[in-house]
C-alpha cells in the first residue's frame, strides 16, 4: 500500500496506511467509494496557497484595504470549497472489475476496471495507482458517462495474480488538496508459466501416425471461437458471438487427422525443477497449438484428453498455471 501521501514523512504515512488497511472495505468486484474511506490532505500547493493567503491578509490589515480583505476571504472560500469538491470528485465513484485477459509470467497484466458515477455524477481526472506503477487517469463526464481503465501490473510468477490494493486519488479541481482512497477490488488475472525460451525438442516418436499436420482452420468440425485475425474469411465470422460482445470473432473448425500426442510430466528428466518443467510444458503447448497438433496434457494431478483449439489451449495453460496451487 505504499503509494505515498503528500507532505507526510514516510513513517507517518506508514502508520496511516496501517490504520486504513483495517478499514478497507470488503473485497468485492464492484465497489462504490464512500465518504468514510476517503482521506484528504492538502498538497504542497495547498500549503503554498495558505501561505500566500496569510501574506495577502497581512497586507490588507496593514493597508486597511477592504478590497484586499475581500479578495483574501474570497480566495479562502474558494480554497475551502475546493477541498469539498476534491472530496466529492472521488465520492460515489463506482468501480467494477471486468474480466482480465490471462498473461504469461513476466508480462504486464492489464486489469480492466469500469468506472461510472452514481446518478450520472461527473468525476474528473481521477488517478489510479498500484504499488509499482505509474498512475492511470480517467474522467467521467456527461459526454462520456463510463470509462474502462487498464491498471497495469507486472506479473512475476505463474498462478493467480490479484490486483491487490490500489489507490484512487484526485487533486481536481484546484490541485490544492489530495483526496484518496484505498480499494481492494476482487480482480484476478490468470498468469501462465513463462514459456521456456529454449525448450528441449519434443520427442515426437510417440506421435501416433505421421500424416500431414492437421489444418486448424479446416472446415470439418466446430472447434471454438477466437478473436478475428487478418485473413479469416467472412464465412468464418461468428455473428452471434459478435452480436453479444461487439468484438469481431471467428469460428474455428478442425479436421480430424488423428495425429495426437501427449505432453507428459514424466517425459522430462526426473530431477528437473517444477517451475522449469511447467515452463517447458507451456512452450510445448503453444507450439502444438500453433502447429495445429492435437495434444493432451498429463501432469500429476490432472489429465486433459487430447484435443485442439483455443479453448483447449486455454484449459491446458490454466492447468499448468494452477499446478500445485490450491484453487478455490
Amino acid at each position: 500500500m505504499n503509494q505515498g501521501i503528500p507532505l507526510l514523512p514516510d513513517f507517518m504515512a506508514r502508520i496511516i496506511e496501517k490504520w486504513a488497511s483495517k478499514r478497507l472495505p470488503e473485497t468485492k468486484n464492484n465497489i462504490t467509494l464512500v465518504r468514510q474511506r476517503i482521506y484528504i490532505l492538502p498538497t504542497r500547493h495547498g500549503i503554498g496557497f495558505l501561505i500566500i493567503l496569510m501574506f495577502i491578509l497581512a497586507g490588507s490589515i496593514n493597508y486597511e484595504n477592504s478590497s484586499g480583505y475581500m479578495l483574501t476571504f474570497l480566495l479562502t472560500g474558494i480554497g475551502f470549497l475546493g477541498m469539498i469538491h476534491t472530496h466529492q470528485n472521488l465520492n460515489h465513484l463506482k468501480l467494477n472489475s471486468v474480466t482480465t485477459k490471462p498473461v504469461f509470467a513476466g508480462q504486464i497484466a492489464r486489469f480492466n476496471v469500469q468506472l461510472s458515477g452514481k446518478n450520472n455524477k461527473q468525476h474528473f481526472n481521477i488517478k489510479f495507482q498500484t504499488v509499482n506503477s505509474d498512475p492511470v487517469s480517467a474522467t467521467i463526464s456527461n459526454d462520456q458517462p463510463a470509462s474502462v481503465i487498464e491498471i497495469p501490473q507486472l506479473t512475476k510468477k505463474r498462478g493467480v495474480c490479484k490486483l491487490g490494493c490500489i489507490k484512487a486519488f484526485t487533486e481536481f479541481p484546484l490541485g490544492l488538496f489530495h483526496a484518496w482512497s484505498w480499494i481492494e477490488l476482487d480482480a484476478q488475472c490468470l498468469v501462465y508459466p513463462a514459456p521456456e525460451a529454449h525448450p528441449p525438442a519434443y520427442n515426437f516418436s510417440n506421435l501416433k501416425a505421421s500424416g500431414k499436420p492437421s489444418q486448424l482452420t479446416g472446415n470439418d468440425d466446430f472447434a471454438g471461437i477466437r478473436d478475428y485475425q487478418k485473413g479469416d474469411s467472412s464465412s468464418m465470422l461468428a455473428w452471434k458471438a459478435i452480436a453479444r460482445s461487439g468484438i469481431l470473432q471467428s469460428k474455428l473448425f478442425y479436421s480430424e487427422s488423428g495425429n495426437e500426442i501427449w505432453l507428459r510430466w514424466d517425459d522430462l528428466p526426473v530431477n528437473m525443477h517444477t517451475e522449469q518443467r511447467l515452463s517447458i510444458l507451456c512452450r510445448w503447448v503453444i507450439e502444438c497449438h500453433n502447429k495445429g497438433i492435437i495434444y493432451g496434457l498429463d501432469i500429476p494431478d490432472k489429465k486433459i484428453l487430447p484435443a485442439s483449439g483455443l479453448l483447449h489451449q486455454n484449459n491446458t495453460l490454466k492447468a499448468l498455471a494452477l499446478y500445485g496451487l490450491n484453487q478455490r
Binding site: F124, N125, K127, S137, A138, T139, P173
Partner: peptide
C-alpha cells in the same frame, strides 16, 4: 486556469 491545469488530457 487552476481547473484547466488540473485536468487530465480529456478535453473539457
Amino acid at each position: 486556469s487552476l481547473i484547466s491545469i488540473n485536468l487530465d488530457t480529456t478535453y473539457i
